[in-house]
């Protein structure tokens, strides 16, 4: 479990960083998306890996923290996903505007490299 998750985060993060360095805006936005997936998984992994444990206590019971998952990383991931979604959408709009204004998809607004 740990190995698979670590590999997934590593592959997503590595691909994301590589794409972020590329000169086309589309590659940059895909890179940012991949990176945010990697980061979301990473946050999730910080709550350790309890399998099959609920994060919410039963109403009216005291509950033993040992048999419950930590709800905070899950809440953080949800917030991070929502914020990441919104900012990616906004970035997409700016990307389209840049495409329309400069007539190319280079991140510096230059025409296609010769």
């Amino acid at each position: 479990m740990e190995l698979i998750l670590a590999l997934a985060i590593g592959v997503l993060g590595g691909s994301g960083v590589w794409l972020l360095m590329r000169p086309r805006t589309f590659q940059v936005i895909i890179g940012l998306s991949l990176l945010s997936y990697a980061v979301n998984l990473f946050i999730f992994s910080m709550g350790r890996f309890p399998v099959g444990r609920p994060p919410v206590l039963e109403p009216g019971t005291m509950g033993d923290p040992a048999v419950f998952a930590d709800p905070l990383p899950q809440a953080l991931v949800l917030t991070a996903i929502v914020i990441g979604f919104a900012t990616t959408a906004l970035f997409l709009v700016v990307m389209m505007a840049a495409r329309g204004l400069t007539g190319g998809d280079h991140v510096d607004g230059r025409a296609r490299d010769r």
């Binding site: 940012l32 700016v94 840049a98 991140v107």
Partner: peptide, 17 residues
């Protein structure tokens, strides 16, 4: 502004991560 904004947003998104 759009050209500078594109860089600005990309850098800040990466920093947020």
């Amino acid at each position: 502004r759009v050209k500078a904004g594109l860089h600005y947003i990309a850098i800040n998104l990466a920093a947020s991560l």
